[in-house]
């Protein structure tokens, strides 16, 4: 592994991955107990890919997500309280209770929003890169999308425009190998990362997407290139979700147990913990980090629970910037 990443950065990676893990474990429990309404998709198992990408970006860089996107704002540094309040549907939610799990957005960390429509947010990130280029600001935009979205046409419209205009964009394919139940290889011709070649932009695949440093390296290379004005990149990261497609779906006939246990044995949090031990971080310190994150999650849940539900009138706000009465 590379040695030039400071231990403090690795510890922050571990902290953010742990935040995603503990936040989503708690959210899954709350779904089961009926405390979170609607549907929830966790990225447990994919934390390395999320955090490696987010931490390769600067604080004010932009990104967009998808339906499996709690991890993205957390990885970018969002406080947990307003995110959890949003999942519960409270007035203090990051989207005032209008978005929920499927539509988190935290503009304060550059998170321009998740999309419940597969592939739909890709041009939004590309557009923010277009604005950065025209306004001359040194920001990079990253679009997270899955192997399912890799077969949406709009990805290629966006990649083409990003390529021909040399936009500071990163197309980050989180290949967890299943579009819900459909194995990617049964519906995808060729390799996703190789599609970049058709647009004359770099395309790389991180085969070990459970290694946060490998992901960080690949995305950092893409971000540096984008910031230098050299244009977009496509980065495909091979990963795996540990939970079901969405909490409570109870369909598990499409992945075999051997495959699941093989991936579970390469847990991204354990992997980075191993690296940290090599750097002299003690088990005690790692336990302490985990305890601190658990405490953060507890506080976030408390914040969500104690917050009021939005007033009914809030449903009629935020459609337009000025007052237009709903008919």
């Amino acid at each position: 592994m590379r040695t030039d990443i400071p231990t403090s950065t690795l510890l922050e990676m571990q902290r953010r991955m742990t935040r995603i893990r503990r936040f989503e474990e708690r959210a899954a429990k709350m779904v089961k107990r009926g405390l979170i309404p609607g549907t929830v998709h966790t990225s447990i198992g994919q934390e390395a890919q999320v955090v490696g990408s987010c931490m390769a970006l600067d604080d004010d860089d932009y990104m967009t997500g998808n339906h499996r996107s709690h991890g993205h704002p957390i990885g970018k540094g969002s406080p947990l309280g307003p995110l959890m309040a949003e999942l519960v549907g409270k007035a203090t939610g990051v989207c005032r209770g209008k978005g929920g799990s499927l539509h988190l957005a935290d503009f304060s960390v550059g998170s321009l929003g998740e999309s419940g429509i597969v592939g739909s947010s890709i041009p939004i990130a590309t557009g923010s890169a277009f604005a950065s280029k025209l306004l001359g600001r040194p920001r990079v935009s990253l679009a997270f999308f899955g192997d399912g979205a890799a077969n949406q046409g709009v990805l290629y419209e966006a990649m083409n425009m990003a390529g021909v205009w040399k936009l500071p964009a990163i197309f980050l394919c989180e290949n967890n190998q299943y579009a819900l139940s459909t194995p990617a290889h049964t519906v995808t011709s060729g390799n996703i990362f190789e599609r970049a070649a058709g647009f004359d932009i770099p395309g790389v695949r991180v085969d070990d997407g459970q290694d946060v440093i490998a992901v960080y390296d690949a995305v950092k290379t893409a971000a540096d290139r984008a910031r230098a004005g050299e244009g977009p990149s496509l980065v495909e990261v091979m990963t795996y979700r540990f939970n079901e497609h969405s909490e409570g779906l109870r369909i598990d006939n499409y992945r075999d147990k051997e495959q699941i246990s093989e991936w579970l044995s390469r847990d991204p949090l354990d992997r980075l913990a191993g690296h940290l031990r090599d750097r002299g971080i003690t088990d005690e310190q790692l336990k302490q980090l985990d305890a601190e994150v658990m405490e953060e999650v507890d506080r976030a849940v408390e914040f969500a629970n104690e917050s009021p539900y939005p007033e009914p009138s809030v449903a009629f706000e935020d459609l337009y910037t000025d007052e237009v009465t709903a008919v």
Partner: peptide, 13 residues
């Protein structure tokens, strides 16, 4: 589709 989305993302930023 790409044009409209890119314009939207640019307008948001």
């Amino acid at each position: 589709e790409g044009i409209v989305g890119i314009a939207a993302g640019a307008a948001m930023t």
